[in-house]
Write a protein that binds this DNA or RNA. Structure first.
Lengths: 125, 125
DNA sequence: CTAAAACCTGACGCCAACGTCAGAGGCAAG
DNA sequence: CTTGCCTCTGACGTTGGCGTCAGGTTTTAG
């Protein structure tokens, strides 16, 4: 139940994917351009997606927000689609994890500094 | 003791500021371009900074890492240099604070998802 | 005095994730 | 049939924080 899904599944078009995930149609096309989300095509050439494409796009958004590039995501996709992971991929996963953790710490520090200033400016009106 | 500092303070040049803060010379010039860090000039035209410029540049870096633009930082600089803050500035401070907090939450969520995958790929070698 | 190192002012280059526009076809409803 | 919305390809534009190169002046070390 990964790529070869049950037959006769209801397929949706790009607009529905975009609205469902809260992104633009252009963004979804871009993901295909980058090899993140490959779609079937209707006889007339329109893209057709399985419903879980919406979930996948939301996931991409989350990873983008975490600072991963589309290239990195494609390199790590096998870790999701299949359980397959080699040593290199595990190393990349850890590296990204550590990078994000460091970023969280940086943001927290910045947050604390802003809170200091807010406290001061609130008591000194 | 904010802008008008004690006379006879030792002034430093741009390279020392850059090395001290761990950024490039180009970056420091860019900050001036954006109105973040105004320097005095020697008779020959070289930029001269007070030592605390190093601290200031580090602060800029921290704010950049938190996602603030140079424009935003210039708008908020009065909150540091002087204690002066009007209602608009306080609102901006809170808005940035909330944005950063939301970003921290997003990153934490992404981190959790990555940790899930790491746990799975580690138990399924 | 001289050569290296540091500084100066432009000004173009870069990257990633799209936005946006142009021009053309496809699809359900009335 | 045609109106109106959705979709297609292709291609250029945007944004921010610098990198980098060119060509020239200045400061410093020996």
């Amino acid at each position: 139940m990964t790529v070869t899904e049950a037959v006769g599944e209801r397929l949706i078009r790009i607009g529905e994917v975009a609205r469902g995930a809260g992104v633009s149609v252009r963004a979804v096309r871009y993901y295909e351009e980058q090899g993140l989300l490959i779609a079937e095509r209707s006889p007339s050439g329109q893209r057709l997606y399985r419903q879980d494409a919406v979930t996948l796009v939301r996931f991409f958004q989350q990873m983008f927000a975490a600072g991963l590039t589309s290239r990195r995501i494609t390199e790590l996709l096998p870790c999701w689609d299949f359980g397959h992971t080699d040593a290199e991929q595990r190393a990349m996963l850890r590296a990204e994890r550590d990078r994000i953790q460091a970023k969280v710490d940086d943001l927290q520090a910045a947050l604390d500094r802003l809170d200091e200033v807010i406290a001061i400016t609130d008591t000194h009106p």
